[in-house]
């Protein structure tokens, strides 16, 4: 399911509007602080999953290093706000930028490779990032991590100070950020750069023959992806208010990867569906709490086998097949 990002059909627009309204009202619909906390995690990890889908879904390369950039963004924002007293509104974009620049540094050697080699190298780089963070004790406080990271505060003249230090307040902050990210990714896909990235995935030789410089566009895509991952990391840092080197662990990459692959790697809604399933569903099925990651490993393999494009596209295909039974058939046979 390739989303026609410049012209959304009316039915889809209505669906998005409904989802938006539910999202805004969600805090009122859920019973209590813990579920709201889960929703905040969903929003933050949804942002991370979206960043990963740019590379895994739209560019079509497997990167195993996303956690490294998540950690870079988290630490960058933490250090800027704790050590340099930067307000969140500056440390957040700075974290994204630092993470994105790190992404370019990693991408330059890594994109000389493809496939499993690229995957291994990006994994290696994220482990290096973790090692450096752990051992640069004078800057990062080492394995102890950084705590007492301030919550974002909004101090506008003539208005009361807003502190984003509760699940409720942070929910709306994270929601705004996720929506902004969705907007940016959609606009990216509609742009010349986005079309080039997808062309590289679909047929790299053809893309080259029409003038698309593979290396340049891959690095551009990686910058955008790691920028967003860094922003997600910064959000996490200011929500949980503690960061440790564990943020660079493969765990976060695997989780994001599961979200993206199970939900649907090549669509925006897929990444979000995957994030939702991964963060919210285990709570509903309490009994799998301990075995959560195990269950998701099984789900990952099952979905690779039976729903290779992910749950999102599978649902969309079902929906369009149902609607075609009632309406005129088009010659669109999308897979």
């Amino acid at each position: 399911m390739k989303e026609d990002v410049v012209r959304t059909n009316p039915r889809r627009a209505v669906l998005y509007a409904v989802v938006f309204m539910i999202a805004c009202a969600a805090p009122l619909l859920v019973p209590g602080g813990y579920f709201l906390h889960l929703l905040v995690l969903f929003l933050i990890f949804g942002t991370l999953a979206l960043s990963l889908s740019i590379i895994v879904g739209f560019l079509g390369e497997l990167t195993l290093g996303q956690a490294g950039f998540f950690a870079v963004g988290a630490y960058a924002s933490a250090l800027l706000s704790v050590d340099q007293n930067w307000p969140f509104w500056f440390s957040l974009p700075a974290a994204g930028l630092i993470s994105g620049l790190t992404g370019i540094l990693v991408g330059i050697p890594s994109f000389r490779l493809q496939g499993p080699y690229f995957a291994i190298v990006t994994l290696g780089f994220s482990q290096i990032i973790g090692l450096v963070i752990t051992n640069s004790i004078s800057i990062t406080r080492g394995p102890m991590g950084i705590s007492r990271i301030p919550a974002p505060t909004l101090d506008l003249p003539m208005l009361p100070t807003v502190r984003f230090n509760t699940e409720l307040s942070f929910y709306y902050l994270a929601l705004a950020l996720l929506l902004a990210t969705v907007y940016v990714v959609r606009r990216l896909l509609a742009s010349r750069t986005g079309h080039a990235i997808v062309a590289i995935r679909e047929n790299a030789a053809l893309a080259q023959s029409v003038g698309i410089d593979l290396y340049r566009y891959k690095i551009t895509a990686f910058f955008i992806s790691t920028f967003i991952a860094g922003i997600a990391g910064a959000m996490y840092a200011h929500y949980v208010r503690v960061v440790t080197p564990h943020l660079a662990d493969v765990y976060y990459t695997s989780s994001a990867l599961i979200m993206v692959v199970v939900g649907g790697a090549a669509t925006i809604s897929g990444a979000l569906i995957g994030a939702f399933i991964f963060t919210i569903v285990p709570e509903i099925l309490r009994f799998i709490e301990d075995a959560r990651l195990l269950v998701f490993g099984v789900i990952l393999i099952l979905s690779i086998h039976y729903m290779p494009k992910g749950i999102g596209p599978a649902i969309a295909q079902l929906a369009s097949r149902l609607s075609r039974r009632t309406g005129p058939s088009s010659d669109e046979v999308r897979k």
Binding site: R192, E202, V210
Partner: peptide
């Protein structure tokens, strides 16, 4: 050598790559 999972129109659009001048920010 085509982009087999995309439509005919989308394939041709790829060919226009070098003639498109607006970038990400214009789209943004």
């Amino acid at each position: 050598s085509l982009m087999f999972d995309l439509t005919v129109g989308e394939n041709v659009r790829a060919g226009l790559h070098t003639r498109v001048s607006t970038g990400v920010f214009a789209s943004l």
